[in-house]
Amino acid sequence: MIQHLVDGILVGSILSLGAIGLTMAMHMLRFANFSHAELLSIGAYCALVFDGVFKAVYTPLGDVIGPLSLTWALSLAIVISMAITGGSAILIDRLVFARVRAKGGELSMVFASFGVAMIIRNVLGLTFGLKVQLYSQDIVFAMVLSRDPFLLVKPDQIFSLVAALIIMFAFHLVLSRTTFGYSLRAVAENPQLAQVSGINLNRMITLIWIIGGGLAAAAGVFYGLTNQINPVLGRDLLLPIFAATIVGGIGSIYGAALGGFLVGIASNLALLILPSGYSPAMPFLIILAVLIIRPTGLFGEERQ
């Protein structure tokens, strides 16, 4: 029970990071972006590549940090990966979404995003192989946090959770303390008024992709660190991330963050009653439950 709860919180933090970017882009551009989760894959593989590069360039970077399997090289690679994934998100927007948008195809964007997702996922598969990969071959033993109730946690999991919380808290400070954060919230609430208040919408779209891509990259690396990396990582996380945005209410950044934790916890607790084979279907049940009980989610607004 406690173990499931803790596991749920750990996975939840990863879902939250993914859902924050998704909910922002979905709200601003008004389409369900089915390629968002592929940004997690891009981030995970990008960090894998740069981890290797840094270790090759300067061997001491290959040392692990404390009890973690995380190396100095990988920590640097996370930062690079966030930047590159943010850049990829903008590139995808320029190449595909912006053009479909310009044609006035708001609904076609959803199709386009599926196509983009398939291309990214399979290009990653072709490039890196379909096999499972790990950031570190070393076996890191889980720590027994308590014997009664029995609770096992890996140091990497604690690192991922703490890092995810720090990233989210930093983003919270940006939203609540800086005029840039106010403009993000202003655009989310009322794009037209934001525009007459002097905010350049196209610039905001670019920034939202950078932030969304960066957060997704961090989520992807943390997932890789605590689980494994494979080309279908994005596909497997897509539905839980969508569920998190719906739980929080589409467009609500804080809702998405909280929604990620709720989906993570609910999916893990469900394993107490359901066989584990059913876990991919859990997010759908959560979506159904939200739609029945409170379609606007926790913090969503009533709008078409």
Binding site: Y182, R185, A186, E189, N190, L193, A194
Partner: peptide, 8 residues
């Protein structure tokens, strides 16, 4: 109408 940002 809607001439202020309500959430700020």
């Amino acid at each position: 109408s809607d001439n202020i940002f309500r959430s700020l």
